[in-house]
Simulated assay, not measured.
Amino acid sequence: MSDRPGLFALIAEDWRANGRDWTRPGFRALAVHRFGVWRMGVPQPLRAPLSILYRHLFRRCRNIYGIELPYSVVVGRHVVIEHQGGIVVHGATVIGDRCILRQNCTLGIKRMDALADAPILHEGVELGAGAVVLGRVHLGKGAKIGANAVVLSDVPPGAFALGVPATIRAGR
């Protein structure tokens, strides 16, 4: 038996992490993501209608809230998506536990010939508003990315990345 919590347990965790407010767009996007991951474990004859429902919910989150979080993204526990709008996450991205993403963040690839080279956010990473992280970049545990920073290289644990292109500063 798996030690990973089920769909409803994960959604309940996300609800608590997002201020116990089911109307927050970030919570709703995470719930749709969790549903999308869960439906992939359902046997094929039953998966088709669930996939149709998932696609509808995914497009709704993308088009209404501006949060694009495909089911192929690996999302840890207690993740918070602050504020809606302009959040794009590439499908090969990994987001660790207790990360915070703010509005207008982009987690993507650098080149079309390297589709799997997406960012990896370790535990406790915080992205400021408008942050852009491109390529196979590791953001270490507790790293903080400043508003509108463009990160193209690894950020060590506990460090700050600020500016365009981002420069690394030691954490406090």
Rank of each mutant, 00 (worst) to 15 (best):
K110N: 15
A149N: 07
L152K: 00
L115G: 02
G96M: 06
G128M: 13
I64K: 07
Y65A: 15
R62L: 12
D154E: 03
G91D: 15
D14Q: 01
R136C: 12
P70Q: 04
R59M: 03
A131F: 13
A159R: 00
G76T: 13
C105N: 09
V89Q: 07
A149G: 11
G85R: 04
L134A: 13
I95M: 04
A118Y: 02
H56T: 08
T93W: 00
N148D: 08
M1R: 11
D117P: 05
W38D: 10
I168E: 04
V79N: 07
A143H: 01
G96Y: 02
V137F: 10
V132R: 08
N104W: 06
A114I: 05
G108T: 13
P119F: 05
N148S: 14
Y65Q: 10
G91V: 02
A161K: 00
R102C: 09
I109Y: 01
G36L: 06
R77N: 14
A48R: 03
A143K: 00
D21W: 02
A118H: 05
V79P: 12
A118N: 03
Q84L: 07
P70G: 08
R28G: 04
H78K: 07
F58I: 03
G163Q: 00
A17V: 12
K144Q: 10
T106I: 13
Q44V: 10
R28W: 04
R39M: 12
L30F: 04
A143Y: 04
D21T: 13
H78D: 15
G158A: 08
I64W: 02
G86H: 06
R77L: 15
T167E: 13
A118V: 07
A166G: 06
M40A: 13
L57M: 12
D3K: 11
G91N: 09
R172M: 06
V155M: 06
I64R: 10
Q84H: 05
E13K: 00
T167N: 07
G108I: 13
V132F: 07
E126F: 11
H56N: 01
H122E: 15
A166N: 01
P45K: 10
V42K: 01
D97G: 03
V133Q: 04
R111V: 14
R16Q: 15
G85H: 07
G142A: 05
T23V: 06
G96F: 05
D21K: 04
L50I: 07
G91Y: 03
Y54H: 15
T23D: 01
R77M: 14
R34N: 06
E82F: 08
R136M: 08
Y71G: 02
V37P: 08
V32S: 01
P45V: 12
L53G: 04
R16K: 10
D21H: 04
L121T: 11
A149H: 06
H33R: 03
I81F: 14
A118L: 07
R4C: 05
G66I: 10
W38P: 11
V155A: 06
P5N: 09
A159Q: 00
Y54G: 10
V89M: 09
L139N: 05
L57H: 02
A116L: 11
E123G: 09
L121G: 11
M1T: 15
R60P: 00
K110S: 14
